[in-house]
């Protein structure tokens, strides 16, 4: 524990800017993955343990698309859209068969998908890791704001993720589809009785969830290594985000993802040996005070 270093950091603008940016980028990418987990749980009450696979495949598809098109924008779009499509196929072919089954059955289906696609990735892309490399447009020196370091690539990523958070929030609260999704989250039987095509609705939810995870994988690919099984590490943190934020709450996912990002950003200065442990301490503390999570509904 190094409280002096943390105190010094919090009173230095350069350190605050650098560590806050660091926390924001970790948090925003986490939010994109966790938003899908919480959306799917909120509407379908399915805990999608295969969600990390969408993140992994999004990264790999973007890696291949960049090689084929030489355009990072197209690569990101390919990663997101292909995973949205994969989300629909996953829901229709597998998950729709275990609605209402016990959690163990759902877990087994998801785990099978994780293992199958980890092996398929090894066959298609090889067992070794890959790195996409930074797009030429972002191979520029970092910005210095109040003495703090802000990489332009991260600033753009934070902007994109922030925009998606706003679109998702507004979409859920203002549009007809969003309202229907929220209604289905509360009472799916009633929504079905009212004549809404819930089959289509559930597929859309999986498309959005999968697409967001694929987008996160594709956006992060220039700076994170691609390797089979890489989805697992983000999956665990996504669940922590979902639990802290409240199962099913998009706002909760955003707030808790940013919270985890900032805990990581500043925790590494003050608690270098205990940064990961600190996240779990925060989670336990929040769950003791609010068992349903920050924005969750108590049942």
């Amino acid at each position: 524990m190094d409280i002096d270093a943390l105190g010094a950091c919090l009173t230095t603008p350069a350190c605050v800017v650098t560590q806050t940016t660091s926390g924001l980028i970790v948090g925003m990418l986490l939010f994109l993955v966790a938003a899908g987990v919480t959306l799917i749980f909120g509407v379908l009450k399915i805990v999608n343990f295969a969600h990390g696979t969408f993140y992994m495949l999004g990264g790999y598809v973007a890696y291949t698309a960049l090689g084929a098109t030489d355009s990072y924008a197209l690569a990101v779009l390919s990663g997101a859209l292909s995973m949205a499509l994969f989300g629909v196929v996953f829901e229709r072919a597998l998950i729709s068969r275990v609605y209402g089954s016990n959690v163990l059955m759902q877990l087994l289906v998801c785990y099978a998908v994780v293992l199958i696609f980890d092996d398929l990735v090894k066959i298609v892309w090889g067992p070794e890791f890959h790195a996409m490399g930074m797009p030429p447009a972002f191979q520029v020196p970092p910005l210095f704001i109040a003495g703090g370091v802000v990489p332009p690539f991260y600033a753009v990523l934070i902007g994109i993720a922030g925009l998606i958070a706003i679109v998702l929030g507004l979409g859920l609260s203002m549009t007809r589809l969003g309202k229907t999704v929220r209604a289905a989250a509360i009472n799916p039987q009633m929504v079905s009785v009212l004549g809404v095509n819930t089959t289509l609705l559930f597929a859309i939810v999986f498309a959005v969830g999968g697409g967001l995870a694929g987008l996160a994988g594709a956006l992060a690919a220039p700076v994170r290594s691609l390797s089979p099984g890489m989805g697992f590490s983000v999956l665990i943190e996504s669940f922590i985000v979902t639990v802290i934020g409240g199962m099913g709450s998009i706002t909760g996912a955003l707030v808790s993802a940013l919270l985890i990002g900032l805990v990581r950003g500043f925790g590494t200065i003050g608690f270098p040996q205990f940064t990961d442990g600190l996240i779990y301490v925060v989670m336990i503390a929040i769950l003791l005070l609010r068992p349903q999570g920050l924005f969750g509904r108590s049942t």
Binding site: T18, S225, S233, T268, P272
Partner: peptide, 15 residues
Amino acid sequence: LGQPDFTEVITKLIQ
């Protein structure tokens, strides 16, 4: 081992 993001480590080093 296998941590996806090293940003906080890098910024800590910068500080």
